[in-house]
Design a protein around this nucleic acid. Structure first.
Lengths: 254, 254
DNA sequence: CGGCCATTTGAACGCGCTCAAGCGCGGTGG
DNA sequence: CCACCGCGCTTGAGCGCGTTCAAATGGCCG
């Protein structure tokens, strides 16, 4: 941890994120799990580092609230956002040794997470079959698929394709958009950060967003907010099949 | 499965790959695991498809022998190799639903794999703590770190950086090179395939390989074979810290 | 030998980059 | 209150990297 986190007791406003993860659990396991999360709750204000690349890190982090960037950077300072973490995602930042983080985790907004070690989850496993690890596995599979779609477009897509894909993925992950009729959603990222995600310079993010606007596909006039006007057209440019993407991004079983 | 695989009984030549995975297991678990792998052995000749994107797939695949491309492709036909799978890697091709493959798996050489379902592993779990899933988790963490390094360079690296990284990663994964003094190794990929991995056109792979040769960093004169003459220099161009990469790519515990 | 595929090399294009200037907006302090 | 500053966004100009298209070379196998 590169910043001193704030620890606090379980509070009512986390009923929601807890519920997403405990929905299909046996009640006894669920309550023990909720208690574990509450015990290990950490908060980070927007703009702070959560975990630094190459430093000691918790093995498992439950994203409860806020937007987290999972970054890696080249020696020359160029940053690539590998993935964007939103509740109820689970982050496993350590590599083979289970100790050192392979990634840089950065709070894009105010963030609440719960950090645990693997043995904590083993300690919870009383039901049969073990459900805790099953949940972790499912979230890992979703993250893998998400990163692969992203990587595909970084390697093969044009700027329009990359950006359209990023917007579409976020639209779907935010629940088909907070405002369902207009498919508009808050995007608490500067164009610089969007560029780190899409592998583009901030200048070219600006140009490409305006191009998509001029084509009538999106409305990006409001700052830190995106409205998708033509989701089919955007999917065509992103070179994505919406149904396929939905199946990849959302759990359909435990 | 898009090709009819060949099933066969356990044979002596797989003692090695089995051993890598069973090294730290309790003997009883290890033998049951080896039997499971042997029971579900499949072979694919070079150039054949193993699993197609969007089709039914096994949940867990143990790579025993050969080179496997983990690909994704855009609607327009452009292919990106997300990762390259070598024994003792474990592939989990399905996404959230545990049924449909999110990736296209392709045999680059003759390949031997063993395919199982999650419940098969649950059935093996008799020791405490469960070691099977721990192995799967560790291999998954390694693959995540590998894909992230790759994605970073697809998003932020030049052609030289991407290619140098690909060669370095393979050099390390192949055991610091089969021939330790010259750090030379067989690379059973056409430049077209290397391009799919590095996110470059095959033409530019050719130019960039020659450029690295002219700089004295590698020797690519022999077809399907690479010799690394100056690993430090190559690491500089790949913008990679060799020790860090080694820690990410290799398991240091179970 | 002929045919096929992989590789090499040249030529030219264009996408996305950097550099640079200007604008808009919110926050701060005189 | 307005002046100022800083930051993010926009837009223009020009460049260079990696692309595509095309042709030639080399290697392997029938």
């Amino acid at each position: 941890m590169s910043q001193a986190p704030v620890t606090e007791r379980a509070s009512a406003q986390f009923a929601d994120p807890f519920a997403v993860l405990t929905a299909d659990m046996a009640p006894a396991t669920a309550s023990r799990f909720s208690a574990l999360l509450a015990r290990n709750l950490r908060r980070f204000p927007a703009g702070t580092g959560i975990v630094a690349e190459g430093e000691q890190a918790p093995q498992i982090m439950f994203a409860l609230e806020g937007w987290i960037a999972l970054n890696k950077s080249l020696e020359d300072g160029n940053v690539q956002m590998i993935d964007l973490i939103l509740s109820p995602d689970i982050i496993e930042p350590t590599s083979a040794d289970g100790q050192i983080s392979a990634y840089d985790l950065h709070a894009l907004t105010d963030v609440a997470i719960s950090t645990v070690q693997r043995r904590d989850l083993d300690g919870l496993e009383i039901s049969d079959p073990p459900q805790m690890w099953s949940i972790v596995r499912t979230r890992a599979a979703i993250a893998r698929a998400r990163v692969a779609e992203h990587t595909l477009r970084l390697g093969q897509g044009s700027a329009q394709t990359r950006l359209a894909y990023v917007l579409l993925e976020l639209c779907l992950r935010l629940g088909g958009a907070q405002d369902a009729r207009t498919r508009a959603f808050d995007l608490p990222l500067t164009q610089q950060r969007i560029g780190e995600l899409a592998g583009l310079s901030s200048v070219h993010v600006s140009r490409t967003l305006r191009r998509l606007s001029r084509q009538g596909l999106i409305d990006a006039s409001e700052s830190r907010r995106i409205a998708i006007n033509d989701i089919q057209g955007l999917a065509r440019i992103a070179k994505v099949e919406l149904d396929v993407l939905r199946n990849e991004l959302f759990a359909t079983d435990v």
